[in-house]
Design a protein around this nucleic acid. Structure first.
Lengths: 229, 229
DNA sequence: GTGTCGCTTCGATGATCATCGAAGTATCGA
DNA sequence: TCGATACTTCGATGATCATCGAAGCGACAC
């Protein structure tokens, strides 16, 4: 008897549940009420959906008093969701229509690392500078990259998780950087206050100065693409 | 507006459709009647499901007279399905119950490359012999491996597809070998008659001599695991 | 030409399920 | 303690959809 993929897929296959799962792809734990708002459903409907997602292991619950925070149960589910996004994007002619779309396409969180145009530019810039060696499905930190990131404060963890991983970006159709390094970069830029998480979505909002500093740090050509594009 | 993953997931999320998609993971094109048998539904039900899968781009149709052959629309969908299998398997306590299960677990097609125990053994043997360098998410052909496989007749194609890719095996919870190399290995062993495709499932049936030859070729220790395990 | 086979379409049927408002419970803050 | 808030449970409702057999169409073989 093979694993029952229909069960898992059907859970993701409800529009409201899909919206909540996608919201959780921002990497933050969100309350039931926040998720209900994201999915534009009533709190009672959200409640029953969340119970269902929890029961089948897609999300985990952490209680804090009356607040109940939900998060994705792990990185493999996040990778699955992002792959679903990539395939769905490849199939559907998406036309950017609103400011939210632009923000998401420019810079957003793909669970714990940077995605969107800026994420792809980061990946490419690191490649150009020989700090990572990334081709097709393989992505490695080079000796030079190792030294540079150590200098910037990155400490590699001994873990099954790769240092670098190329993650296919659904909006750009090219790779952005995932793995320990991708995660550290996001943590670092948030800690420096270069950008903030958007409270309503997965997009990252860079301040003007923060964006300049980010691009300077990672060698991203500021004239290549700007936000007004 | 983000891509609508619910649509895609809901298509996979029907039990009958999931069974048919999984059957197509064997890499062969199958007729509507064969797929109806796989899913144990009536031909008319299969017909409407297949029309639906085709409409949303998951499968492609090739007509040959009155026979209509369906196949998965591409490798990225195959990878998604395999990922669904891996996550589903990790979540559900699966107990091997029948001969079909054993066959699938021992050697099966994961779209176009070998999976199951034998697939994992192949991957590990190639690593042990230094023919591929595979760790975590990265998998590369070594210089020695390149020479050895060239000697065996493998010709790398210039293509976006990686030579090697580690693909997580849902039944073994470890990596088997995908990519151009993984595909070539399957084509080669089928051409040599070492194994045949099972007509009812995705499993590969090795003849006794074929299995011995396969293990000898790729340096798989014949005493490590045998089929009677 | 005729009968068989592969497949689709049609229409009816029953099951499933997302949804909401109302009511209830637990937590929090003044 | 009390009112507000976060959240869950309940039950009713309407929509969706998988399913099948019957009927029909086109390809195939004799």
């Amino acid at each position: 008897m093979q694993p029952d993929i229909a069960l898992l897929a059907a859970e993701i296959g409800d529009p409201s549940r899909a919206q909540m799962l996608t919201a959780l792809l921002g990497g933050q734990a969100l309350t039931a009420t926040e998720l209900a708002l994201c999915a534009e459903i009533s709190p009672s409907t959200a409640s029953s959906h969340l119970a269902r997602l929890e029961r089948c292991g897609l999300i985990q619950l952490r209680k804090q008093g009356r607040h109940r925070y939900f998060e994705l149960s792990g990185a493999s589910l996040a990778a699955l969701l992002e792959q679903l996004l990539a395939i769905s994007a490849a199939q559907a002619p998406t036309v950017a229509t609103g400011p939210d779309d632009l923000a998401l396409r420019y810079a957003r969180l793909c669970y714990d690392h940077l995605a969107g145009q800026l994420g792809v530019q980061l990946h490419d810039a690191l490649c150009t500078q020989g700090l990572i060696d990334s081709n097709a499905d393989q992505c490695q930190l080079t000796t030079a990259g190792s030294a540079r990131f150590a200098h910037w404060g990155f400490v590699a963890q001994r873990s099954r998780r790769p240092l670098c991983r190329a993650c296919l970006d659904w909006s750009e159709r090219r790779s952005h950087l995932a793995g320990q390094l991708g995660q550290w970069i996001v943590e670092d830029l948030l800690q420096r206050g270069w950008a903030k998480r958007d409270l309503q979505s997965r997009s990252l909002s860079f301040s003007t100065a923060g964006e300049r500093a980010f691009k300077h740090r990672y060698g991203i050509d500021d004239r290549a693409v700007s936000r007004s594009a």
